[in-house]
């Protein structure tokens, strides 16, 4: 049942208008409730709704925290926890595989490096892969999706069938093959994950455009004589961008997972650069005896991916204009 229709929440100030035509606003009607509320833009409205979503806000705070840590860790982490990569061979045996303590909150790994420090530096790889790869996918996906939806016909058929073919391949295998062809490096991890991520974004954007195109306001713009470019920029894009924001946010989490999987399989970042995937791979040998070696990078992956998913979910609800419409 549509509760929304029963909850009109709009300006309550309308003048009589009983006879049409110009109506002089002799004595301004009392506008108590409506005037008290400042006009809200849709974005600030969405922010208001997002703020009330506790899970999404937890996700957002966690993401902001990780981003700050990743950006600033050079300034404080080495002094506190030592180098994430360098091995002090003289002290290695004493420092190897220490359990969590005040000095090493997450313990140390087999080579005597601080696990917390490596988790902190690992966030740099994970975040940059997540964001850059998603950026590449999004740009390609937006262009492809827009071409398919707006021009339709043969464009639509070619692009969408191409997307289907991409989606029919086993994704991780495809990424591995691509890295094998391009050569193993962190840049190529960005490129491989980014290149292969576009089909789903293209699909989401295409269907968003198609549903926006159905709206009368697009016809209204055409009936006013608006050009194609104006219709796309002023009417279609602003109304379909929300779904892309949501999807891209969730996609970042997916890209982080893929990078971890690649590193775990030895196809991603090369040691000694710390990456959560590599750390799990390193730590799994000691799962039974020194579980923290695997636990902490694993927790980092789970919480970060979960944070992006929660934020994405929250954004979806917050940006849905229909919640206020209809």
């Amino acid at each position: 049942m549509d509760k929304n229709t029963d909850m009109p929440i709009y300006a309550v100030d309308e003048k009589s208008g009983a006879q049409g035509g110009p109506v002089n606003q002799g004595s301004p009607e009392p506008e108590t409730t409506a005037a008290a509320k400042p006009t809200r833009t849709l974005w600030s409205d969405a922010w208001g709704r997002l703020r009330k979503n506790k899970l999404a806000m937890i996700g957002a705070i966690w993401i902001i925290f990780i981003v700050i840590v990743a950006l600033t860790c050079d300034l404080w982490a080495p002094q506190w926890l030592g180098s994430p990569t360098q091995i002090d061979s003289s002290q290695m045996s004493e420092l190897s595989k220490l359990p969590p303590s005040a000095e090493h909150p997450f313990g140390t790994d087999a080579l005597g490096r601080d696990v917390l420090c490596r988790v902190i530096y690992g966030s740099r790889i994970s975040l940059s892969v997540g964001i850059l790869a998603t950026a590449i996918s999004t740009v390609i996906g937006l262009v492809m999706g827009a071409l398919a939806a707006y021009y339709g016909g043969i464009w639509d058929t070619i692009i969408m069938r191409l997307a289907d073919i991409f989606l029919a391949f086993p994704y991780t295998l495809f990424v591995i093959v691509l890295i094998a062809v391009l050569g193993q490096s962190i840049t190529n991890v960005f490129i491989a994950i980014g290149l292969l991520g576009w089909p789903s974004i293209a699909r989401v954007f295409r269907s968003a455009i198609l549903s926006v195109k159905e709206n009368d306001y697009v016809d209204a713009a055409r009936a006013m004589g608006a050009s194609d470019a104006r219709i796309v920029i002023r009417h279609i894009f602003p109304n379909s961008v929300a779904s892309i924001v949501v999807y891209a946010t969730m996609n970042i989490g997916g890209a982080i997972l893929t990078e971890s999987a690649l590193s775990y399989l030895g196809m991603g970042v090369t040691p000694p650069t710390p990456s959560w995937g590599i750390m799990i791979e390193d730590g799994q040998t000691y799962l039974a005896t020194q579980p923290w070696l695997m636990l902490f990078p694993g927790l980092a992956i789970i919480t970060t991916v979960l944070a992006f998913t929660l934020l994405g979910d929250g954004l979806r609800d917050a940006l849905d204009v229909k919640m206020k419409d209809a």
Partner: peptide, 19 residues
Amino acid sequence: LDEVGLNPEHINRYPHEFS
């Protein structure tokens, strides 16, 4: 806006704020 019986001060409002 005045002519169609709406408050001209609402020029910066969004459609969802109206019935």
